[in-house]
Every structure is written in C-alpha cells, then in structure tokens.
Write a protein that binds this DNA or RNA. Sequence first.
DNA 1: TTCTCGCGGGCCCTTACTTCA
DNA 2: GATGAAGTAAGGGCCCGCGAG
Length: 308
Amino acid sequence: MASSSSAEDHGLLLGLTLSTAHRNHITAAANLNGVHSFEPSLSLTLLSGTDHADQVSDADAAVKKGTGCARQEASPPNSAVSSFSAASGGGRMVIVKRERDGLSSTDEMDTAERVVSSSRASDDDDDGGSTAAARKKLRLTKDQSALLEESFKHHSTLNPKQKQALARQLNLRPRQVEVWFQNRRARTKLKQTEVDCEFLKKCCETLTDENRRLHKELQDLKALKLPPPQAAAAAAAQFYMHMPAATLSMCPSCERVGGPAAGSVAPAASTAGGADHHRGGGSDGNSAFSIAQKPQFFNPFTNPSAAC
DNA sequence: TTCTCGCGGGCCCTTACTTCA
DNA sequence: GATGAAGTAAGGGCCCGCGAG
C-alpha cells in the first residue's frame, strides 16, 4: 500500500504492457539467477492493463484479502500483553513485548525457546538482562524452511488459523511464523523490484535507441527535397517526434495521430477505444504509418519492434 | 448516520546475529 | 583466527481497515 502510493507520488509513472505470465516468468528467472543491481532510491510503478494494481502490489491485494479473511476467523484478542519470561534452563531471557497471537502458554514458549537453545546451546550462560540476549535468534532448520516455503507458495499471507496450524507443525511460535512470512514477502518484493528495475533500464535503453534512430530518419527525410504534401507530412512527423514513440497512435481510417491525450493510461482502454472508433467503419488496414501499429505502451516481449 | 477509539494485521526500516568466502 | 559481505530473524514504528460504542 505505502509502496505503490509512494511510487506514484514521487516516482515516475510508467505504463507498460506486461502480462502476469511475463512477470511470473521474470520472477522465476530472478529467483534462479539472483539479481543484485537493486537501486533502493528508484520508485517505479508498472501499469499492466486493467489489473495493474494487482501486479504492482499483488502482495498488497493479498494483504487486503488476507486481512478480511483474518478478521472473520479472528482468534480471541489477547493483545497488548507484555510478558517477560525467563527460560529456566540457562537464565536466557525471552522478551515478548507484544503477543498478538493469542498464545502465551508456557508450552508454546518452551517450544520456541527449545529451538533457540538448540541453535545456540553453548550460549546458555548469557547475562539474562542484556538486549543482546533478547536478540539472540534462531536459525530455522532446513525442514522448517522448506515447509514454510511450501506454504508460502500456496498463500503468501496466513490467517490466524493457518498460522497456528503451521506454528504447531513446525514447533515454532505463531509470531515466528508471522515474522517469517513478513520477511519472505519483503524478499519477494525486493526481488521483483530488482527485476522491474532491470526491465525498465532495458526499456529505457531501447527507447533511447529508437529515439536516436527516428531522429536520424527525420534528418534523412529533411535532407530530401520533398514535394509540398510530403513536406507537410514530414513537418507533422517532426512535431510528433517530440512525443515518446510509445505514446503515439494513429487512426488508420482518419489518419490522425493521437498523442497521449488520445489514448488512456491503460493499454486495454486504448485498444478498446481504437476498436470503438473503427467499429462499423471497417478497417482496411491502412498501414502507411508504422507507429500506428504499436500499442500505447510498449512491451518488448509481446510487441517485438524496432525499439526492442 | 457520523465520529471516535481500540485492535489486529501488514509493510517498511532497522538492528543484531549467523554463515560463508 | 580475523574480517567483511550477505542472508535473515526479529524489533519498532506507522498506517489502514474494521467493529464497537
């Protein structure tokens, strides 16, 4: 929620046609390859048809859904309970500032602490009151991680019941499961942002090349001594040259070039609008102006053109 | 009907610890 | 063994939606 809104507030609003399949594919590729060129300062928003919001912040959508679901199945509130428990074995202190999970039983705590102790069995002689002791953390076992990953594949958010069940299954506190999912979502989002960043960089490069090419083409045209009608067309082309090529479209029947205002932000809307305009008028496929064949928002995957 | 408040849950940023090269 | 980078569990703050009063 905050991420998408901040991107729209501060960042470049860039429209791209990018199917869910592509994004999934890219995400999978990123997970395999691992991209490490993340630029934290870059805010980006990808618009993808009518469901762009889902793709930009699908996690957010899941959040909303999950929240609603969670509310329906909410466990009895036991919030704002500050507990301060000390492990009996080695004097380790476990500070639970706020237990949201409705579980404060010693069984649950003992289970979690057993995991902590197993991972750091040699540190039981710690000073119990220090912050460092409180922050000593466990490393999840491979089995635990695998099960959490498997669960994350099915749903990126958990309702309280699922959380409880998973925690019981893993011998962890529900809070730990919750934190793991939170961190996992953050990692997923980070990876996706990295992928998006790379994608936008590539698009920027290709559009720059396209722009350069068109400028050169324009120079060539201007160099020619054109008859008046063609000169006028060249002048018009020069006028629209200042617009990004991806925002230009031309009605094949009326041969008017539409700028950004002619199309809408969403590609689906732009194509629908074009279809409406030609409905009943017949489309003889006048392809004199090649830019008209391009979608409103350029996608090098689905629309391989000179730009990409 | 509208407003206020508390609660629960999510995300972001950060810290601290672990692992590995 | 020391060290720095990367990974990650966890803490804290903030925001938002929802339900109750």
